[in-house]
Amino acid sequence: MLEENDKIVKLPVSFYKNGSFTEGEDVVVREAPVTLYLNDQEFVTLVCSPGELKELAVGFLCSEGVLLKRENLKSILINEDDGLIWVETAGESTSQEMFLKRFVTSCCGRGRASFYFINDTRGVAQVDSDLHIAPRDIFYLTDQLEKLSGVFKTTGGAHSAALCTRDGVVFFYEDIGRHNAVDKIFGRCFLDGIPYADKILVFSGRISSEILIKVAKMGIPVIVSRSAPTELAVKLADQLGITVVGFAREGRLSLYTHHKRVAD
């Protein structure tokens, strides 16, 4: 895993304040395109922060319904300097016609409503978990996310995601893309065989329908964000048995679905 300093760079900048300019340096988050080849065919180009490319590639393929079982992942080869990833999977090759050829941006993902494409529905099932969490635990976890978000604090240009139990953070990722940060969580869990039923995803960004679907595919029962959910995300969460907690900061939160999991 790259150090925080490998994800930022200093650039010359002109600052304007009180009617005059001064010259100086500012710290900016790094951004790089990475092309993923699936079974020797170009599959997608992702724009992401450097580092954790194995987790990102695997998580993206899990999100897309390409990887459903650990034994189907045969090999991963990464050339980080040139931004290239080769993934080989077992079984039948994925039909390119099943996917929309696209350039996945760092901010808004594919820019489409969820379940419009067949690969969105793969691996989605009702989430069944008896997990309960208290509001004080939620505030503790959001505080931990903020403390760990060093790239965001330095640049203001990154999103954060953490897989947590009620007691603390299991692991944490930052990336310029909120989708990427969650895919890195997904990939790490897939590679390490981490169970989901007792976990919480704590997240810095907006809970869109696409983020919600990633959480559903992992089988995580609770997603917490310091930001807002969308209407479609809330509707999907209600149908799929996922608790959505938004605006969790400064001693307050908004509980949108499956309230029974959150109680003192």
Rank of each mutant, 00 (worst) to 15 (best):
residue 232 L to K: 06
residue 163 L to C: 03
residue 38 L to A: 11
residue 118 I to Y: 13
residue 27 V to C: 12
residue 163 L to M: 07
residue 107 C to V: 11
residue 259 H to C: 09
residue 55 E to M: 04
residue 226 R to M: 14
residue 21 F to K: 05
residue 49 S to Q: 04
residue 262 V to H: 03
residue 137 D to V: 02
residue 125 A to R: 14
residue 19 G to F: 00
residue 183 D to A: 06
residue 115 F to E: 14
residue 34 V to T: 08
residue 143 D to A: 11
residue 47 V to G: 02
residue 16 Y to I: 08
residue 37 Y to G: 08
residue 252 R to Y: 05
residue 92 E to R: 13
residue 148 L to I: 02
residue 113 A to K: 14
residue 219 G to E: 05
residue 136 R to N: 08
residue 223 I to L: 03
residue 91 G to L: 11
residue 141 L to W: 02
residue 68 L to I: 13
residue 112 R to Q: 08
residue 186 F to P: 00
residue 89 T to C: 13
residue 154 T to N: 09
residue 9 V to R: 08
residue 114 S to A: 14
residue 106 S to M: 10
residue 238 D to V: 04
residue 227 S to Q: 10
residue 257 T to S: 12
residue 135 P to Q: 06
residue 104 V to H: 02
residue 22 T to Q: 10
residue 126 Q to G: 11
residue 256 Y to W: 12
residue 214 K to H: 04
residue 168 G to K: 04
residue 72 N to Y: 12
residue 246 G to R: 03
residue 169 V to N: 00
residue 164 C to S: 03
residue 216 A to G: 07
residue 101 K to L: 09
residue 196 Y to G: 13
residue 121 T to V: 12
residue 247 F to H: 08
residue 64 E to D: 13
residue 80 E to N: 10
residue 111 G to N: 10
residue 140 Y to A: 05
residue 47 V to S: 07
residue 31 E to P: 03
residue 106 S to A: 14
residue 219 G to C: 09
residue 129 S to L: 07
residue 250 E to C: 06
residue 201 L to Y: 00
residue 36 L to N: 00
residue 196 Y to I: 11
residue 104 V to Q: 02
residue 41 Q to F: 11
residue 144 Q to C: 09
residue 106 S to N: 09
residue 210 E to T: 09
residue 38 L to C: 09
residue 100 L to T: 15
residue 177 G to I: 03
residue 105 T to A: 05
residue 207 I to P: 01
residue 186 F to K: 05
residue 20 S to W: 00
residue 166 R to H: 01
residue 93 S to Q: 14
residue 78 I to V: 15
residue 63 S to Y: 05
residue 250 E to I: 04
residue 22 T to H: 04
residue 187 G to V: 03
residue 70 R to Q: 14
residue 151 V to F: 01
residue 59 G to P: 07
residue 157 G to Y: 07
residue 247 F to Y: 12
residue 215 V to N: 01
residue 136 R to Q: 10
residue 222 V to S: 01
residue 166 R to N: 12
residue 126 Q to E: 15
residue 98 M to T: 11
residue 197 A to E: 15
